[in-house]
Every structure is written in C-alpha cells, then in structure tokens.
C-alpha cells in the first residue's frame, strides 16, 4: 500500500514540496500565457495563476490512487495530482499526443493513471460524477477518497445540492473542494448569492462537515485537507472545504483585465500581495527551513521540463481526420 501523506508533518519536507508544486504550476501556466499569442493553442484556456495554493495543498494530501475531478479551470488540479505535463500541453495544442488525443483541449483533461478522472467545462457537471466515483469505491470496499473541485459558482447549481445530499445520506468518501475566487466570469458574488452567507455555511446546511480557510496559504489547505481525507477515508462521511483565493488574470485567456470594469486594480493588488508562492517562501525562511539553492535548482529543472513539453507538443502531429469517428462507441 502507498504511504499515506496524511502522516507527514510541517515543515520538514512538506513545506518545500508545497512550494515546488505551486512553482511548477505557476511556471507552466505562465508559459501558456506567454505562448498563447502565437495562436497555436486554439482553445479557451482558464488559468489558475494566483490560486496555486489550493491545488498544491490538495494534491499533496492525496494518495496517488485517490481520485480527482474538476471543471473548466483544471490545469493546476491536474498537475498537482500528478497528471502528465506533456500530455496536457499537447492537448492544449490540439495534438494527437494530447491526453484526449486532441478531442478535448484545455477544458477537458484526463489522466487516469494519476487518478485525474476528468475535467469538463459545464459548471457543476463533474460534482455528481465524483460522488458516483466515491459511491462505487464504498460499495467495492476500496479505501480511496475522491475530490470534486468546484468554483463557488457551482454551488449555485441545483446539482451541487443534490450531490451533497446523496453523499451525506450514504456517508460517501468524497471531498467537495470549493475554490472561492469571488467571481464567476465577470459576475461578482454580490449579484449571485445573498450578502453575508458564506458558501461553506450553505453546504453545512446539508448536514456535513464544512469549513473555510485561506486558499493562498498552501499549508493551511494541506492541513485541513489531511484532516478531511482522514475523515472521508475512515468512513465518517463527506467534507466540504471552501478556500478563499483570487485569480490574477482574465477569466478565460492570458491577459490581465482589471481595467475593463468588473473589478478594481486595487482589489487585485491586495490579492497580489497575498501571492501564495511568496507567502510560503516567506514562511519557510522565517522558520529557517527554506532551501534557496534547492528551489533555484528546481526552477531550472522545471523550466527545462516545460520547454521540453512545449516543443514536443508543437512538433507532434495533429490528429488525422480519418480518425474523426474514433471512440464514438466503446
């Protein structure tokens, strides 16, 4: 059996691991943002830059055989769960070597080997499917847990509530993992949910444990996740976790869009100050366990890895039109 990360303690190894996980996600997504103007990544891309603390904390708290599902903004979740980088970049380039053989693009990622069971861009759609994964695991007596990543807007969909109810009823080993970045595209929470009602409290109304924490504090995410995973794995039922965070760039695409009017530059700058990567670096320094040389080396290796993934993706063949009908039926 795989060693359970739930037993790891901060800060010895986990701090550096979380930092590296965030840095890797950031470097990958910045490479996507930079390369997007070349117009070879011909699909919508939803970047998580600024939100990496959540993905890193969650990924580190899971075992390789645990499972994850996500939505439109899933690059970070995929990478943190151990999804194959080359296959993701190739998928964004629409290539045959992509994780969906080019059929899906950025909004449709999958890596079953890594336990990343699928991401789709219809808001809320994977939530009940993730519940179904955990339902089967419970029936088949596997001790895995499933994480359903969702944005706060997904909690406005009826299917979210139906899914949580069923998971609560059957005490399923599933964690509803909400990244609350305050916006759904251009719509602030104020036009979507009543003022003063925290998302996690609404979830708690279904009779499950629900908690909220700072999503830009990767260690806090990790700790809370470890606890939630322990509960879910031990058969004590589902957990809802809400992590407050902020996306730095536009909803869809590589640019910054604080000037177009739906949010302010000042708000962005406040969150920019709370960069999850810098925050953890500061904390590790303060605790005397920051290995600067190791991080520099990690960045160098990771950049090489990313460059490799991009050039492989660019050189890879497009899917042949003759395969258009492949996979229509099993």
């Amino acid at each position: 059996m795989t060693a359970s990360p739930e037993t790891s303690t901060f800060p010895s190894q986990i701090g550096q691991r979380l930092l590296e996980s965030m840095v890797r996600i950031r470097l990958v997504e910045e490479a996507i943002a930079t390369g997007y103007a070349e117009q070879q990544m011909r699909c919508p891309v939803h970047l998580s830059i600024g939100q990496e603390g959540v993905a890193a904390g969650v990924g580190a708290a899971l075992r390789p055989d645990d499972q994850v599902m996500s939505g439109h903004r899933s690059h970070a979740h995929y990478l943190a769960k151990g999804g194959d980088l080359n296959a993701m970049i190739a998928e964004i380039y629409g290539k045959e070597t992509g994780c969906c053989r080019g059929r899906g693009g950025s909004m449709h990622l999958v890596d079953l080997k890594a336990g990343f069971v699928g991401a789709v861009p219809i808001v809320g759609s994977t939530i009940p499917i993730a519940v179904g994964l955990s339902f089967a695991d419970k029936q088949l007596k596997r001790d895995r847990v499933t994480v359903a990543f969702l944005g706060e807007a997904a909690t406005e969909e009826g299917v979210f509530h139906e899914s949580v109810n069923f998971a609560a009823l059957h005490q399923l080993p599933v964690i509803f993992l909400c990244e609350n970045n305050l916006y759904s595209v251009y719509s602030p929470l104020s036009v979507r949910q009543p003022a003063g009602q925290a998302v996690y409290k609404t979830a708690a109304g279904h009779g499950i444990r629900a908690e909220q924490a700072d999503g830009n504090d990767a260690v806090a995410v990790y700790s809370l996740m470890c606890d939630a995973v322990r509960q879910a794995r031990s058969g004590s039922g589902p957990v809802f976790l809400e992590f407050m965070t902020y996306r730095w760039r536009e909803h869809c695409g590589p640019a910054f869009d604080n000037h177009i009017g739906y949010r302010t530059e000042a708000e962005y700058l406040t969150w920019r100050e709370r960069d999850p990567v810098e925050a953890l670096e500061r904390r590790l320094r303060a605790e005397g366990c920051f290995d600067e040389a190791a991080l520099v080396d990690f960045k160098r290796r990771t950049s090489a890895e990313i460059n490799g993934a991009f050039s492989a993706a660019k050189q890879a063949p497009f899917p042949d039109a003759a395969g258009l009908m492949d996979h229509l039926y099993a």
Binding site: G94, G98, R103, F318, P319, L324, M325, L328
Partner: peptide, 14 residues
C-alpha cells in the same frame, strides 16, 4: 458528421 464536435483545429476543419 455523426460524432461529437472535436476540439483540435485539424479535426474541427474536417
């Protein structure tokens, strides 16, 4: 064609 719409530009063109 009688299949879902693929994302890759090469398949979408077809």
């Amino acid at each position: 064609p009688d299949c879902p719409t693929p994302t890759s530009p090469s398949l979408a063109a077809a």
